[in-house]
Simulated assay, not measured.
Amino acid sequence: MSSQNLLTKPHYFILDGLRGVAAIIVVTFHLTEPLGTGHLDILVNHGYLAVDFFFLLSGFVIGYTYDDRWRKMTVTEFFKRRIIRLQPMVVLGMTLGAMGFYFTDSTIWPLIHTVPVWKMLLVMLIGYTVLPVPLSLDIRGWQEMHPLNSVGWSLFFEYIANILYAVWIRKFSNTALTVLVVLAAIALAQLAITNGDVSGGWTLNAEQVRVGLTRTIYPFLAGLLMSRILKPAYIKNAFLMCSFLLAVVLYMPRIGGAAHLWMNGVYESTCIIIIFPLIVYMGASGVLQNGREYRICKFLGDISYPLYLVHYPLVYFYVAWISDNKGVTLLQAWPYATLVLFGSIALAYAALKWYDEPVRRWLGKQSLKL
């Protein structure tokens, strides 16, 4: 079964599947992160680069889906579509984070038991909008934009990219867009090599906002450019090859160590600027081998966004347990980590079928009445 439907605009099912693969790797990154002492020794050391891969996929899908609709679609209609697609799971993710907040009281978060309910609810309501909370509302103590669901920071930058696309960048010629992509790549490489990695973007201060914007702009614009100029080939076994390559990239140990931070920066720059676009090109050129591969890609694609939004409220419990049991080893933690991983996948699927899809259908019908 091909990834293209000859009766309509082709749908890239393999890219959907790769988004799901990346989402699962993100969960494994967050499950191994508390077992390390810092960026240098996390088992899934480059798992956070999956977010940069998401931004690249987002730019590709946005351009592919909407670039040819602007003669009939207004900016308001575009934003309605994006809000309907993104916001229901944002609301659920923040709600789950709020429901579990006080139950994750731990030595790692000494503030939790001092937070009044009204303050937690205020943070939840702000989280529903994806706007970052100020540091004065940091109720967990990690200086996060969204203390109830850490991953909300990337949705904030996703919206910024969508806004820039709708009001400005969609009008760029391919030449102008190429120039902007090159400049963004230079800025990304400078950030990565100077800092030793691109990790960051989740705190509301000038430096971290710069990191978040730099991580967003290049991959999103590169994906948009690819959607315009890409001429897919015909590649067999693309899903398997791309999944393997993506896993190798994201599971790669830290490069260079503390003495040569720039080496890791070069590695991450290469991944984001060259390897990720190559994976997207291969995925877009791929041919599904059979119905089983189609079902796998569809399932992974369907759960990818819900999984990203619901897993961290469960990870908070896991992190609290590790913090309160000093010296926990990987051997001791893996049964609990496995439980959280598969529990997150089950929760994501339930959220998709019982909440996200019904709510989006209802919102879609309401938007037609406006």
Score class of each variant (00 low, 15 high):
294 Y>H: 12
261 L>H: 12
268 E>I: 11
287 V>E: 15
258 A>D: 13
304 S>W: 15
276 F>G: 05
264 N>K: 09
339 L>S: 08
338 T>P: 02
256 G>M: 12
282 M>L: 08
320 A>C: 07
326 K>M: 11
342 F>K: 02
310 V>L: 12
284 A>S: 02
269 S>T: 10
261 L>C: 08
278 L>V: 10
312 Y>S: 00
327 G>K: 03
318 Y>E: 05
338 T>G: 15
263 M>K: 13
266 V>T: 01
266 V>P: 07
345 I>L: 04
341 L>Y: 00
301 G>H: 11
309 L>S: 05
340 V>M: 02
262 W>S: 13
302 D>H: 06
304 S>A: 15
252 M>T: 15
259 A>N: 12
324 D>E: 14
316 Y>C: 10
271 C>F: 05
261 L>G: 07
310 V>G: 10
293 E>D: 15
305 Y>Q: 12
339 L>C: 09
328 V>A: 15
258 A>C: 02
334 W>D: 06
291 G>I: 00
258 A>H: 11
278 L>S: 13
319 V>D: 06
324 D>W: 14
345 I>Y: 07
306 P>E: 03
254 R>F: 10
273 I>S: 08
294 Y>D: 01
263 M>P: 02
280 V>W: 01
315 V>D: 07
251 Y>Q: 01
331 L>Q: 13
294 Y>Q: 13
331 L>P: 00
309 L>G: 07
259 A>I: 01
329 T>A: 07
299 F>S: 09
319 V>T: 04
295 R>W: 10
283 G>F: 02
309 L>D: 07
269 S>N: 06
330 L>I: 00
271 C>R: 05
271 C>M: 15
268 E>Q: 15
267 Y>D: 08
332 Q>E: 15
294 Y>V: 00
317 F>Y: 09
344 S>F: 03
289 Q>W: 04
297 C>G: 05
253 P>D: 07
257 G>W: 01
333 A>Y: 12
296 I>T: 15
317 F>V: 00
333 A>G: 10
311 H>T: 01
275 I>N: 02
288 L>R: 04
270 T>S: 04
309 L>K: 10
275 I>H: 03
347 L>K: 08
328 V>F: 08
275 I>L: 14
300 L>D: 09
335 P>K: 11
322 I>K: 10
319 V>R: 11
293 E>T: 12
339 L>E: 02
283 G>R: 03
346 A>Q: 03
271 C>V: 13
343 G>R: 01
330 L>P: 03
315 V>A: 08
279 I>K: 04
333 A>V: 11
267 Y>V: 00
302 D>Q: 09
327 G>A: 01
266 V>D: 00
343 G>E: 01
278 L>C: 14
335 P>D: 09
338 T>V: 11
287 V>W: 14
288 L>N: 05
332 Q>S: 13
318 Y>D: 07
261 L>F: 12
257 G>V: 00
266 V>H: 05
345 I>F: 06
276 F>H: 04
327 G>L: 04
250 L>E: 05
299 F>I: 01
277 P>M: 00
346 A>I: 11
319 V>S: 09
271 C>K: 11
326 K>Q: 05
251 Y>N: 06
253 P>V: 02
317 F>S: 06
317 F>G: 00
322 I>A: 08
293 E>M: 13
260 H>D: 14
